[in-house]
Amino acid sequence: MPTLRENLKRLSEAIGVSGEEREVRQLLRELTQDHLEDVAVDVMGNLTGRLKGGQAGGLRVLLGAPMDEVGLMVSGGETFLNVLPVGRLDMRYVAAARVLIGAQKTAGVVLFVPIHKSYGQNSLPEPKSILVDTGGKNGAKVGERIAFVGNYAELGGDVVRGKAFQGRAACAVLVALIESLAAAPLPLDIYVAFTAQARIYGRGATVAANRLKPQVAFLLDGSECDDLPRAEGDTQAPMVRLGGGAVLRAAEEMGIPDQRLFAYARSLAEARGLPYQIDFSEAYGTENANISLTQAGVPTLSLSIPVRYMSSPNGLVSLTDLENTQRLLRELLAALTPSILES
């Protein structure tokens, strides 16, 4: 776990706004280089590779995790920078945010009209109204990406706070799994893809799957927790709890997951006594559907890590959930046979 904890911190703090994932990609390359061969950065910026010591002729499996995070792009401005959104912003978290601009990471803040001058104005602003202040006039160039600053911290128990957990917690789990598979190989031909542009319609994964042509894919991602105080009268039990284990998605925005893999994962998790939970909600921005649609349909399963406040720069994840997700995915791979896909 110390490595997982450290990797998660480094991954969370690295910057990788959709379309410019370089820093995260370079970090992931460093973290996995000992265990991968045929490493490539493809046209989309996906980092892909083949697990060393894989069994040629074995079932060809793709393991994926998204690298990118939502952010902003500089569009102009003089005293203050005008910006455009990258990805789907939850505007509640943009007010008075701290940001880093471009590769040089110039510090900036999102302007917020003092309450003395805006009392009672409670409508969320449009993303295009966001203004960023660098304190000076030479702050940034048009087209530079702007990342939100998280505040990584270890809270009580096994919970950590930080930004970009939707993708980076998945990346940290995939790094841990690669290490585990390198230490104790399985008779499979395993490819990995750290994908770009997941937060803008999962486009990186589409290209990665086309290139690598897996027979089956397991995609890691984050899933929004709903174990939170509810509105008066909302008595629905939460579906996704922090600390509740890996999340199996029963529904996707653009399709439903492969039913054979879903049933396989569910029964295996129960047989092995590994915690899991099922999310019936239609999640945004997952890549599964895109990969399912490529290559006339690759059987694909999403495994998600529970994240509270997933769209904020300060989400919460449970390291135990990360561990358990890694273990479940390893078990799924260990017991994987072609017959599961034939049933």
Partner: peptide, 23 residues
């Protein structure tokens, strides 16, 4: 103790609530 100011995710909010800041 470290923590974070939490709010319900957009999926748990009504349409009107999605358009305003929480109180």
């Amino acid at each position: 103790l470290s923590g974070v100011v939490g709010a319900r995710p957009l999926s748990l909010l009504s349409e009107a609530e999605q358009e305003r800041y929480p109180a």
